[in-house]
């Protein structure tokens, strides 16, 4: 799979990462090389093979549906780049 500049720009937008116009060609080359190398997996016959999504073969545990944490709003906001009146603040979203 060879990626063109437009595709790389689309991936960057999906990933919410700003990429400068003059970096797109280099990235397209690098990502295409990696994808080309990955495509050797096409040679493996996986018909009837279930996907493996986790390393430990176990079921998720149940727990009581009770509050066991909380009341630490100040601690959480202490790391925010911007906060006001107990809330995170972001650039204006609604006009």
């Amino acid at each position: 799979m060879s990626l063109d500049k437009a595709t790389v720009a689309r991936i960057a937008a999906l990933a919410r990462i700003r990429v400068a116009e003059d970096e797109l060609d280099g990235l397209a080359r690098e990502l295409s090389n990696i994808l080309g190398w990955i495509e050797q997996l096409d040679a493996v016959d996986t018909s009837g093979v279930p996907p493996m999504s986790r390393a430990a073969d176990q079921k998720l545990r149940w727990r009581e549906d009770v509050v066991d944490d909380g009341g630490i709003g100040e601690k959480i906001l202490a790391n925010a780049p911007a906060a006001k009146d107990g809330f995170f603040t972001v650039p204006k979203v609604i006009e």
Binding site: A15, R16, I17, A80, A82, V90, P91, K92
Partner: peptide
């Protein structure tokens, strides 16, 4: 938004995300 670095320079929320992560 919640921790770490945030890019300066205004713009809307989407631009802030992209600039911060970029």
């Amino acid at each position: 938004v919640r921790y770490g670095h945030r890019a300066e320079g205004g713009g809307d929320l989407l631009e802030m995300y992209e600039a911060t992560r970029g």
